[in-house]
């Protein structure tokens, strides 16, 4: 229950924090989307029920605070959660190099979906932003994803006494997010 109560507060904190960090490090040119990394983490490590709620809440908060089109990132985060969950069934999510690669790939997927939406629905050509905004941002996310996973692993050790090794390919020994 604590998980569901803490999730909205945590998501607001994360989204507000990621903009502040981006402002300090990149002078606002790029955003370290910790919220996206958290969604990928949820896809890799949490069960379907809790993970999908996390993706929805993070997406909605991100939409409310950052996006000009409410619902866009809610939908994208859900898609990325489902995709990362599917990937976690066939990939060893303990390997940080693979985690970095998937972080980069999912960041690209997110940006491709944003471009598609802008192009098809709003009739706005966002292709020009690919080299200036999207690619650097995907690389930043790719670099930060293993750091986030490493920190979360330390947290798992702190909470559960050891990092949980998943035996499954069916999702049985996923980490419970109950605190």
């Amino acid at each position: 229950m604590a998980y569901y109560l803490l999730l909205p507060v945590l998501s607001i904190l994360v989204v507000a924090l990621q903009t502040t960090i981006a402002d300090i490090i990149f002078s606002g040119r790029l955003v370290i989307e910790i919220s996206l990394i958290a969604v990928i983490y949820a896809g890799f490590r949490l069960d379907l029920f809790k993970g999908s709620i996390l993706a929805f809440v993070f997406g909605f908060v991100f939409d409310c605070l950052v996006s000009s089109v409410i619902g866009l990132f809610t939908l994208i985060y859900l898609i990325i959660f489902v995709a990362s969950y599917a990937v976690s069934l066939i990939t060893d999510t303990q390997k940080l190099r693979l985690v970095a690669l998937w972080g980069f790939v999912f960041a690209l997927v997110e940006e491709a979906l944003v471009i598609l939406f802008y192009n098809l629905i709003l009739r706005f050509d966002a292709m020009a932003s690919i080299p200036f905004v999207f690619l650097p941002q995907a690389m930043v996310i790719g670099l930060f994803t293993p750091v986030f996973f490493y920190l979360m692993r330390r947290l798992e050790v702190y909470i559960y006494g050891k990092p949980l090794h998943r035996l499954e390919r069916g999702g049985d020994s996923r980490i419970s997010a109950e605190i």
């Binding site: 379907l48 999908s52 709620i53 929805f56 089109v69 619902g71 939908l75 859900l78 629905i121």
Partner: peptide, 25 residues
């Protein structure tokens, strides 16, 4: 149960998006 929840969340997100896209336009 989880799959039903995901489907519901997807539907809510799509409704929100289409409603707000129209609002924006």
């Amino acid at each position: 149960k989880s799959l039903v929840l995901i489907a519901v969340l997807f539907i809510i997100a799509i409704i929100m998006l289409s409603y707000n896209t129209r609002r924006l336009q």
